[in-house]
Amino acid sequence: MGEKSDVWQGTLALMALRTLESMGPLHGYGLARRIEQISGDRLQLNYGTLYPALLKLEQEGFIRSRWGLSDNNRRAKYYELTKAGQRQVKKAAAEWEQTTAILACFLTPAEEA
């Protein structure tokens, strides 16, 4: 196993939203695995922390959940984006991009030097 990063505060929600946007409805376990995969296994995700984050998103009305059957015919709770969630992904992604872009301006020259 290579070096893994912890998930930064507040980014997990965006990752979950973004994953749900691209993958469609997922259960918690599937979502956790998918986030790890997308990060190229560079993230050390404590699966347990995902659930309170999902609950928060649900309370805020960005996602909704319902019980369904998994591929292996197992009962699992599926999460999917709401309309508000889709808008929120765009907004949060744009904000995040802007933040990283600004940050990049500070970091790039240092590398050149």
């Binding site: 259960h27 918690g28 376990y29 599937g30 695995r33 699966y47 659930y51 998994s70 292996n72 197992r74 009962r75 699992a76 709770k77």
Partner: peptide, 16 residues
């Protein structure tokens, strides 16, 4: 409800 969700999570992970 959440206990059931967690249980299903653990079982899926175990199967994998």
């Amino acid at each position: 409800d959440f206990a059931a969700e967690l249980e299903s999570h653990v079982e899926m992970h175990t199967e994998d």
